[in-house]
Design a protein around this nucleic acid. Structure first.
Lengths: 227, 227
DNA sequence: GATAGTTTCATACAAATGTTTGAAATGCAA
DNA sequence: TTGCATTTCAAACATTTGTATGAAACTATC
């Protein structure tokens, strides 16, 4: 029975370094130095650098998705199979935000790693990301149960926008804090979750009676036209 | 007077290659081959690879910001100095979305380059991004004119969410299309702009009477806790 | 305690990368 | 044309990178 010491040490060291310095400038030699193992150990245990990164990401993704589904089921059971739409969206964006926001100095390594993933996106990870769609479908189904009279298109857009707000907040919390001179408290995680969910729900509700929107057509901006 | 042929050729080739293949695997040798110039030309004209990337990004950013401000001023002048909030937000997200969405095969090189920027984010670009804050402040000011009774915090969040939805739609339009099986028409650019603006405005309006939100506290998910 | 399988290690490899160099070519003014 | 500055070019440089190798160390089974 292999003790897996080395394997585990590599994973931990890699996650820490990637979280701290990004994928761009962390080499295998950095990782093995941090893990106190031999250079060849990475290729021996993982096959290649990309497979190491992939394993890190898959592990964290599965855990995140699992937690999302746990909260979703919890909400649906509490509502006898039909959760409030805000509960569904909360299960979707809550785990991400709870994990990745909050005071910077008390963020866990996995959290910082996932923030890095959402900022940098390396090919090895992008390939895996596409599998996320099946997971999201489960939330569309749940949303349909919550809002049975809403069209699928509106549900898709609602989910997309909710995820968008959550993701961008994770990515750019620092910029928002600076822009607002600290007035937007991104460390108040539950407050942020509430905001994201509320706006998304308003979007879903407002979409029920569409058509009143101001329609105005403009040309493609010169800034992005030519070439 | 330098003809700038070489300089220009390098810029064009680099933008095209980065747009097509991302920052990760485009080397200086790829660029000079595409531009039909000598390898040393890049360092001679730009100093380094990073400065080349920076110049590309700065150029496109300035153009984008300029277009945003043009549309903002146009809207404010039409409203005698006080534009509708939806017009302000439309000036903010419109140029980005109009440039980067639409049928894939007719996207311009600068558009595809900016999409790439929003997906990959290399250090050379991240450094510059921070200067964007001053630009965004102008939109906060305009939003304040539109909604004088709204608190600054709400305005910041509104701007942040509007940008978030626009950015993520640019980044993940493909995923949304796949998830919705084509039912969400991301090629209908004006339709997307309307959706983004509408949801953001609803968020701003709904925030006027806050406090009714469902508050529920949950622990940090196990998936992101330890380490 | 010999043997077979696993893991570790130092080291080498091969390729790719951004950058530099110094000479050749070019353009331009006097 | 001469002279000077700018630009181009081929070649080399100096690292850095992920990966491969083969022997040594270790582990567990018989």
């Amino acid at each position: 029975m292999p003790s897996d010491q080395t394997r585990t040490a590599i994973l931990a060291a890699a996650e820490r370094l990637y979280a701290d310095r990004g994928f761009g400038d962390v080499t295998l030699r950095d990782i093995v130095a941090e893990a106190n193992v031999n250079l060849a150990a990475v290729n021996y245990h993982f096959g290649s650098k990309d497979e190491l990164i992939a394993e890190l990401f898959v592990t964290r993704s599965l855990a995140l998705n699992k937690e999302r589904l746990r909260e979703l089921r919890e909400a649906e059971e509490a509502g006898n199979g039909r959760a409030d739409i805000s509960e569904v969206l909360r299960a979707l964006v809550g785990p991400t935000l709870r994990g990745c926001l909050g005071p910077e100095n008390q963020r866990s390594t996995p959290a910082r790693f996932m923030i890095r993933v959402s900022i940098e996106s390396v090919p090895a990870i992008r390939r895996i990301r596409n599998r996320e769609i099946d997971h999201l479908r489960k939330f569309v189904t749940a949303m349909r149960r919550s809002l049975p009279d809403r069209s699928d298109v509106e549900l898709y857009w609602g989910l997309h926008f909710a995820l968008a707000m959550a993701q961008q907040t994770v990515r750019d919390s620092e910029r928002l804090a600076k822009l607002s001179d600290g007035k937007c408290d991104v460390d108040d995680v539950e407050g942020v979750i509430r905001r994201v969910v509320d706006v998304a729900v308003m979007g879903l509700n407002g979409a029920a009676h569409a058509g009143k929107a101001t329609l105005r057509t403009t040309a493609i901006p010169t800034s992005l036209r030519g070439a």
